[in-house]
Design a protein around this nucleic acid. Structure first.
Length: 273
DNA sequence: GCATTACCCTGAAAGC
DNA sequence: TGCTTTCAGGGTAATG
């Protein structure tokens, strides 16, 4: 399940592999993703050159020349695969982008929760999906003071708050739960009851967990691999996620699981208050 | 404003 | 062994 570190890992690979290439042809499966792939997608890309690769939250954006933006969200099972020649089309290859040098980039997604779109906008700021995003947790505006001010205004449980992409862009289930563990906070804590000091610790924990995950090229369970098919390593560093019944590495308590909003949460009852 | 539920989807695991 | 059921989850929308 790609979250920000996995998307950042892919973005770094793509900057090395496809920037400067010109699209010659686009083939689509015809099946809808989260939304149908717009008809303009296959019309806009051919003839354009990839100028830059951006990441905003969990979105990948390829900036094209003449100016257009190709937006990608991987959903839960989306994969971007780069091939030095013609790549294998599977039942789940929903878009195959061929470049003029005969290399290819494929979008595969067996659950089809992802998103592909194209905008002929003047700037990134005009793309509606990106306008809806909150602050980037590794960006300059993200710190403990800002987080505390935001938390104080909410009565939500802190896990739901952190998953809200409109507040903080890029966190998903894994890294929210890992960050809460490192900040000694239970996922059920009410935001407005979190102290300034705890908010500062939480902001630091979020940034630390994300940076470590990026260094390890993300977390691979069943779905994630980067555009060259390389698996991430961060699953070997997890403290609570999917460790129900196992011992906490810090206090030896048994990791517990609970359901919040139909999603699993994992926490250490000894370390997290 | 917030929680809950449902929906989209399919592969893996569990259950029978 | 083979079939059926359950579960997983990101984002979004509807409902209470």
């Amino acid at each position: 399940m790609p979250e920000m570190p996995e998307v950042e890992t892919i973005a770094r690979k793509l900057r090395k592999t496809i920037v400067g290439k010109r699209v010659s042809e686009v083939q689509l499966s015809g099946l809808p993703l989260r939304r149908p792939i717009p008809g303009s997608f296959a019309a806009v890309l051919p003839g354009r050159t990839i100028r830059r690769i951006h990441r905003r939250g969990k979105y990948l954006i390829a900036e094209l020349e003449p100016r257009a933006y190709w937006l990608i969200h991987l959903g839960m099972s989306g994969r971007i695969l780069y091939f030095p020649g013609a790549g294998e089309r599977t039942a789940h290859t929903h878009a195959a982008i061929r470049f003029t040098d005969a290399t290819e980039l494929h979008y595969r997604d067996h659950r089809r929760f992802g998103l592909l779109a194209v905008y002929e906008a003047a700037g990134l700021g005009e793309i509606p999906e990106l306008q809806a995003l909150g602050r980037d947790p590794l960006g300059a505006g993200f710190n403990g003071q800002w987080l505390w001010r935001e938390l104080r205004r909410s009565r939500q449980q802190v896990k739901s708050f952190l998953l809200d992409q409109g507040r903080i862009a890029g966190l998903g289930n894994i890294y929210v739960l890992e960050a809460l563990f490192h900040a000694h906070l239970r996922p059920t804590r009410r935001c407005h009851r979190i102290s300034r000091g705890e908010a500062v610790d939480l902001a630091r924990a979020i940034a630390k967990v994300l940076r470590q995950a990026i260094r390890n090229r993300g977390t691979s369970f069943s779905d994630f691999m980067d555009s060259d098919g390389v698996l991430g390593d961060y699953q070997n560093h997890l403290s609570v996620f999917q460790r129900e019944g196992k011992r906490c590495r810090r206090c030896r308590s048994e990791i517990r699981r609970l359901i919040q909003g139909n999603r699993s949460s994992f926490f250490c009852p000894g370390c997290q208050k």
